[in-house]
Simulated assay, not measured.
Amino acid sequence: MEVRFDGKRALVTGAGKGIGRDTAKALVKCGAEVFALSRTQEDLDSLVQEYPGIQPVQCDLGDPEATKAAVESVGPIDLLVNNAGIIILQPFLDVTLDAFDKVMNTNVRAVLQVSQIVAKGMVERGTGGSIVNLSSLVSKSVLKEHTSYCASKGALDVMSKVMALELGPHKIRVNTVNPTVVLTDMTRKIGYGDPAKAGPILARIPLGKLVEVDDVVNAILYLLSDKAAMVNGTHLPIEGGFLTS
């Protein structure tokens, strides 16, 4: 199935590393004009060196004023991928308000703000568009020490449904992808590169392996594309059968 985005302008948040970075590169390969947003300038520099056509946007989404200025600066957007996210692991009884706020601000509040700016432009132009929010399977099947992260992804799923409901009449589709543990730098840093930690999750996946970045990127491309023209308000699990066990 060939997917093309010629003539489309795409914004990917959290594009410096992992899923966001590979999504930005994939969109370029499919013909889109891509704006890659990251808080880390070094990551953007290396991305542009690899793909000179990508437009870098340096911004910390934890800063609402900087976020507004950065997103408005890129102009009209047809395809939005809200990929940026953080995770802070703490046992429930030790969850701090500061950590909880940081996770919710990046994983939920920033998605709200970025999507509002982009969607208002889509509505004004009357051309429609597609938004994909990167959620997680932890919105459906929780993990220990993931209180803030699970709460943020549960909120993101529900917010995405409201977005789909209200933006649908403007021909704007909104969906989420909900992978289980994906092998990225972030997940390796919190221990999932260790078979001992990954073991209990692998035991529940009939396909016997963790999700790779490409598995998620391919799902994002599908949901952004006209191939998913009647897919709206959906949470797409990418989990190798984890929920069957």
Score class of each variant (00 low, 15 high):
D43S: 04
V71P: 07
K120H: 12
V123L: 08
I54W: 09
A99L: 03
C59V: 15
L61Q: 13
S73A: 15
N133G: 03
V132K: 11
S73Q: 11
S141Y: 14
Q55K: 12
E145D: 15
S115G: 14
P64G: 09
V118N: 04
G128A: 10
L93E: 15
R109C: 04
C150W: 02
M104H: 01
L112K: 04
Y51H: 08
S115P: 10
V142K: 02
F100D: 07
V74C: 05
N107I: 00
S46W: 00
Q113R: 15
Q116I: 00
T127Y: 01
V142W: 07
P56D: 02
L61K: 05
L44S: 05
Q58D: 01
N107E: 00
D45E: 08
V57F: 07
C59G: 12
V48G: 04
D98S: 08
T147P: 01
A99M: 04
L44R: 03
K102W: 02
L44E: 08
Q55Y: 04
L134M: 15
G62I: 06
A151C: 05
T127M: 08
D94Y: 10
Y149P: 02
V142H: 06
V103P: 01
T96K: 12
K140Y: 15
V114D: 05
D78K: 01
V118D: 10
I131E: 11
E65D: 13
Y51G: 00
D101Y: 03
Q58Y: 09
A84F: 14
V111Y: 10
Q49E: 15
M104N: 02
G129I: 12
S136K: 11
A110M: 03
D60Y: 10
F92T: 13
V48T: 14
L47N: 09
A66H: 06
A66W: 10
M104V: 04
M122S: 03
T147C: 08
G85M: 06
D98V: 09
C150F: 03
K144M: 02
V138G: 05
N83K: 10
N133L: 03
V123M: 15
E72L: 14
G85D: 09
D43W: 06
G62E: 07
S141D: 13
A99I: 04
V48A: 06
N82L: 01
G129P: 12
S141H: 14
I117Q: 10
A70V: 11
K120N: 15
N133H: 14
G128F: 10
S135Q: 12
L89W: 05
Q90F: 08
K120S: 11
E50H: 10
P56Q: 01
I77T: 09
Y51M: 15
E50Y: 08
D43F: 04
P76M: 01
L80I: 00
L97P: 02
L47H: 11
P52Y: 13
Q55I: 11
S115C: 06
C150R: 02
C59R: 12
L137S: 09
I87C: 13
Q55V: 12
E145H: 15
T127S: 11
A69H: 07
V103N: 00
D45R: 02
S73H: 10
I77A: 00
N82A: 00
